[in-house]
C-alpha cells in the first residue's frame, strides 16, 4: 500500500483529537448542520443565478462524464455490481481531493484495456507504483468501507451499501438494519468458502 492511505492511518489519532476539540467548541448537530447547509445552498443559488446559469448544462455534462468514467474505473477495480448513486458520491469526493483524477483514471483504464482485463486480478499488478496505484487503492477502499478514510472527519459515501457488509451478508447483520423476524435468526454456522454473490 502506498503512502496516501498509510498517512491516513498514521495520523488518525491526532485527527480524532482535533475533531473532538472542534466538536467541543462548536456543538452543532448533524441535522442542524444539514439544515444550515441547505439554507446556504439556497442563498448561493439566489445570489448567483445569472452568471452561473448559462454554464450549468456544461457543468452537468462534465459531471456525468466524470461519473461515467469513474464507474468504468470502479467496475474494473471491483469484481461486483456497483451502485451508480454511491459511485457518484465517491467520484465527487475523489474529485475534490485529486485534481489529477481524470488523468489517473485514464491511465488505469488504459492499462486494464491493454490487458483486456475481465477482473481486477488481470491487471492490478501492472499499475505502476505511484499516485495512480495509490488512487486505485483509495477507490477500492472507498467502495468497501463507504468512507474516504479511517479518520473521524472522513467523508461518508454510504453505510449500508459499503461492500464490507456484502462479504458477510449471508450471516452478519448490517448494524441497525433488521436481519429477520422476531426470534427467527437461529442458524447454523456457515463456512468461509461460501462467499455471497454481490
Amino acid at each position: 500500500m502506498g503512502g496516501f492511505l498509510q498517512a491516513h492511518f498514521d495520523d488518525e489519532n491526532a485527527t480524532r483529537r482535533q475533531l473532538s476539540e472542534a466538536k467541543m467548541k462548536l456543538p452543532v448537530s448533524r441535522r442542524r448542520l444539514l439544515i444550515g447547509s441547505a439554507a446556504m445552498a439556497v442563498g448561493y443559488v439566489a445570489l448567483s443565478t445569472s452568471p452561473a446559469f448559462p454554464a450549468a448544462p456544461a457543468a452537468a455534462a462534465s459531471g456525468e462524464a466524470l461519473n461515467a468514467k469513474f464507474m468504468r474505473l470502479s467496475n474494473l477495480l471491483i469484481n461486483h455490481r456497483l451502485s451508480p448513486a454511491v459511485g457518484a458520491r465517491i467520484a465527487e469526493g475523489a474529485a475534490a481531493d485529486h485534481k489529477d483524477m481524470a488523468a489517473m483514471m485514464d491511465q488505469i483504464i488504459a492499462i486494464a484495456e491493454q490487458k483486456q482485463a475481465r477482473v481486477v486480478e488481470d491487471f492490478f499488478e501492472d499499475i505502476p507504483a505511484g499516485p495512480a496505484k495509490e488512487f486505485a487503492h483509495w477507490v477500492i477502499f472507498a467502495w468497501y468501507s463507504g468512507v474516504s478514510s479511517p479518520k473521524p472527519d472522513a467523508k461518508v459515501f454510504t453505510f449500508e451499501e459499503a461492500l464490507t457488509f456484502q462479504t458477510t451478508s449471508d450471516v452478519v447483520t448490517i448494524p441497525s438494519y433488521g436481519l429477520s423476524g422476531p426470534n427467527l435468526w437461529s442458524q447454523a454456522t456457515v463456512p468461509l468458502s461460501q462467499m455471497p454473490r454481490f
Binding site: 441535522r31 468512507v147 479511517p150 448494524p175 441497525s176
Partner: peptide
C-alpha cells in the same frame, strides 16, 4: 440517523 451517517471509524 446520526449513527448511520457517521464515518465507519
Amino acid at each position: 440517523e446520526n449513527f448511520r451517517n457517521a464515518p465507519l471509524g
